[in-house]
Structures are given as structure tokens and as C-alpha cells.
């Protein structure tokens, strides 16, 4: 493919996506309150820089998508938001991650408490080998949310649009559910402890298109109550669900590769008139 002017790339991107770009109004609609503010965040594993140059604000009740090629630090970025990286040997973070204006990497902050407030859904559905009911009820019971536990379980399953499918078999093993159901169960499990934010790490990559659609629909519904950040390698998905999109790219310097935040804007802007050539190339399917 010959090099095209940016306008042409944007045109291609639109036709390639062939979907309605979400969130034209959302950035203006709800997303004024800042939930996360990242100030010059760099993440190292040992000596190697994994991802750097992260300056961005994540807004309340908005879906923020993180896109970019493999190895660009999308998941690492997501996991810095709830301190899931802490367990990885050699993990080091510089800069500031402010959550409602408080730095979550301060010494006085308990990472367990951070994770308690910020729910997470993983790439592969990972229900516990317990009953459907116990999958949801386990964490609230431990975390002292014992009152009206059954109601809490029902609400979580309803919020995850799973209640009607499982209400008659709550005592059966969660491993008997289909992949899409398992992933919605995992979302319900995260919602049951009433987090403020929901982080989704490629939640649909192990799902078929129908299950993917059900999860995406669910994300739209959860927008009213939750701030969501989704990592996805699927650009169409970002365009479908996200109000704002951050594009990460790979920097190759002296043979070492590290991720970098290239561009962060409304999804519409990123997909129709990206400000950076690398974003335009990625959107147009030129690499990654």
C-alpha cells in the first residue's frame, strides 16, 4: 500500500471499521469528573522499561479503551491501576497514579484495599471451581458484606445480565457455564463487592462473537454506575464500546522494546482524525 495522506487514511479507517463510532457525546455528557490521573508514569521490570510516558486522565462513568499492538504495555498499564503488578518480581513504577486525587502507590496505601475498590475482569474467564452462587457470594462474605447476601448475589447477576439464565441452577458448578456466561459471571463477581471502577483486560478475546456482543452490551449498561477501562486488541471493539481511546505503540531503541502512550482522545477523534501518524497507521491496519 502506498503512503496515503491522513485524510485518506481516516476515510479508510471509517470504511474498514464500518461501525458507528461510539461516544460522540459521552465525553461531554458524563465524563467531567476525573477518576484517575496518571502523571508521567513509567513502569520498569528489572532494568527494562516496559511502558512509559503515560500522562492521562480517566473520567467517571466513561468507557476508556486501551488499544495498541502486542507487547506495547496495554495490560501493564491496566494493572498499574489496581496494583495487580505488585506481585511481579522486579516491578517498579515511577511517576504518580492518582485515584480521586490520592496516590495509590504511596507507602501508606494497602494494595489489598486498592483492589477491593477496583474490580477487574481477565482475559480468560476464570470462575472459581465452586457453585454459581458461591462464585458471587465468596468475596462479599469475606469482606464483611454479609447482610442480605442472597439479594446481593441476585443483584450482581442481574447487573451482569446473567440472572435469567442461571437463576434455576445457582447451586450448580460455574464451570458448567458457557464461555460467555462464565465471563459475565466474572463480571458479576467483580460487581458484587461494589467497586468504583471496573478494569477489563481483553475480556472478549476468549469468546465467540455472540458472547462478545453480550459482554459489550453489558458494558454499555454498566456505564451508568461504573467507570470502565478496557484493554482490547480489537479496534472494532474499541470503536463500538469506548468513549475515549488511548493508543499505545512500541518504541524500539537500541534493540530494546518498550511501550509508549502515543495518543489519547475521544474515540471519534482517534478513529477519524488521529493526530499522530503512528495512530493513523495502526488504525488503517498497516501494522500490529
Amino acid at each position: 500500500m502506498s503512503l496515503s495522506p491522513p485524510e485518506k487514511i481516516a476515510e479508510q479507517a471509517r470504511s474498514l471499521l464500518n461501525v458507528e463510532v461510539a461516544g460522540e457525546s459521552a465525553a461531554a455528557a458524563g465524563g467531567t469528573e476525573v477518576v484517575y490521573e496518571l502523571r508521567d508514569v513509567h513502569v520498569h521490570y528489572g532494568q527494562a522499561l516496559a511502558v512509559g510516558g503515560m500522562n492521562m486522565r480517566i473520567h467517571k462513568n466513561v468507557i476508556t479503551a486501551i488499544i495498541g499492538p502486542s507487547g506495547c504495555g496495554k495490560s501493564t498499564m491496566l494493572r498499574t491501576l489496581n496494583r495487580m503488578n505488585d506481585a511481579i518480581p522486579g516491578f517498579r513504577l515511577t511517576g504518580e497514579v492518582l485515584y480521586h486525587d490520592r496516590s495509590i502507590y504511596e507507602r501508606s496505601i494497602d494494595p489489598v484495599e486498592v483492589r477491593r475498590r477496583i474490580g477487574m475482569v481477565f482475559q480468560r474467564p476464570n470462575p472459581f471451581p465452586k457453585s454459581i452462587y458461591e462464585n458471587i457470594a465468596w468475596a462479599p462474605r469475606i469482606l464483611g458484606l454479609r447482610a442480605d447476601l442472597e439479594e446481593r448475589v441476585e443483584n450482581a447477576l442481574r447487573a451482569a445480565a446473567l440472572w435469567d439464565e442461571v437463576k434455576d441452577r445457582l447451586k450448580q458448578s460455574a464451570l458448567g457455564l458457557s464461555g460467555g456466561q462464565q465471563q459475565r459471571l466474572c463480571i458479576a463477581r467483580a460487581l458484587a463487592i461494589e467497586p468504583d471502577v471496573l478494569l477489563l483486560d481483553e475480556p472478549c478475546s476468549a469468546l465467540d462473537p455472540i458472547a462478545t456482543a453480550s459482554v459489550e452490551e453489558l458494558m454499555h449498561e454498566l456505564k451508568r454506575d461504573y467507570t470502565q477501562v478496557i484493554v482490547t486488541h480489537n479496534m472494532q471493539q474499541a470503536a463500538r464500546v469506548a468513549d475515549r481511546t488511548a493508543f499505545f505503540s512500541l518504541n524500539v531503541e537500541n534493540g530494546s522494546r518498550s511501550g509508549v502512550l502515543v495518543e489519547y482522545d475521544t474515540t471519534k477523534k482517534i478513529f477519524t482524525s488521529p493526530g499522530d501518524q503512528r495512530t493513523a497507521d495502526y488504525i488503517a491496519g498497516r501494522f500490529g
Binding site: N82, M84, A87, V112, E113, V114, R115, R116, R117, G119, M120, F122, N126, P127, F128, A139, I142, L143, C186, R189, A190, I193
Partner: peptide
């Protein structure tokens, strides 16, 4: 990971 992410000790 799932248990960790739920803020469980």
C-alpha cells in the same frame, strides 16, 4: 488472580 483482584487477603 481472580481472588487477588477481589481485594481478598
Amino acid at each position: 488472580n481472580a481472588a487477588h483482584a477481589l481485594g481478598v487477603r
